[in-house]
């Protein structure tokens, strides 16, 4: 039972089913007079990614309010000198978002035109992967530098929040790297089996991680 076959051909590389996340979506049959047709079916992964990002946003909202309450509760708020490398990491992450956006456009045009050349898209994806890896490694270096200053997780609330916020963010970036690997694997398979929705969702997630990082940077800069 092919599930994608009957859908409007937005994807030129048709594959039998399953897919990013594995949704099984019944296409609407053409029989039946319907008084009220349901909305055009969208891909669950597109909805799913926004829902997931909402949850992640809520989580960081909770961290933020915890930070504000904690700042007001104790006399032990000592401002933190951020390791310089954090700024470099920020640039790396912005660059990765830009390169991923390039890749996304290449993939989109690849879908549109069906040109056999996926290599350029793949190159940008590998670049993003590398930049993302650099970012996480850079964050690791930042933690090392903080430790060298004698600031550990439990030293004071500022260092606690710095480690927690950056680590939770880094874990989510690692998740994004996983998504990138998935996209790369799908795109570089002998018969490219990438859905456009997977590509888009991965890049939304990645851009969200970038925006979240800028927010965290601001928070750390102002508050910590």
């Amino acid at each position: 039972m092919g599930t994608t076959a009957q859908r409007p051909p937005t994807v030129t590389t048709i594959r039998p089913g399953g897919g990013s996340g594995g949704g099984v979506r019944p296409p609407g049959p053409d029989d039946g007079e319907l008084k009220a047709l349901s909305e055009p079916r969208s891909e669950p992964v597109r909805t799913g990614i926004w829902v997931g990002l909402a949850a992640i946003g809520m989580m960081f909202a909770a961290f933020t309010s915890a930070l504000i309450v904690r700042q007001g509760s104790g006399e032990d708020w000592h401002h933190l000198v951020m390791p310089r490398i954090v700024l470099l990491n920020t640039l790396v992450l912005i660059a990765s978002s830009l390169s991923l956006e390039r890749a996304r456009r290449k993939v989109a045009s690849y879908f549109r035109t069906g040109k056999k050349d996926r290599q350029e898209a793949l190159r940008w994806l590998y670049a993003t992967l590398a930049l993302g890896g650099f970012f996480v490694a850079g964050q690791f270096v930042a933690w090392q530098q903080l430790r060298a200053q004698g600031l550990y997780l439990s030293t004071n609330p500022n260092s606690s929040f710095f480690y927690v916020l950056t680590a939770v963010h880094a874990v989510h970036v690692l998740g994004g790297l996983g998504g990138l690997l998935f996209v790369i694997r799908r795109l570089s398979a002998p018969v490219a089996a990438l859905r456009r929705s997977s590509m888009d969702s991965t890049s939304y997630y990645w851009h969200f991680m970038g925006a979240l990082w800028l927010y965290l940077l601001l928070l750390v800069w102002i508050k910590l």
Partner: peptide, 21 residues
């Protein structure tokens, strides 16, 4: 629970049958 909630929401919004407003 977060995984479950995400799944429920996406399913309800995207996988409704024809005519199931």
């Amino acid at each position: 629970s977060l995984l479950g909630a995400l799944n429920f929401i996406a399913t309800t919004l995207d996988l409704r049958a024809k005519g199931m407003t």
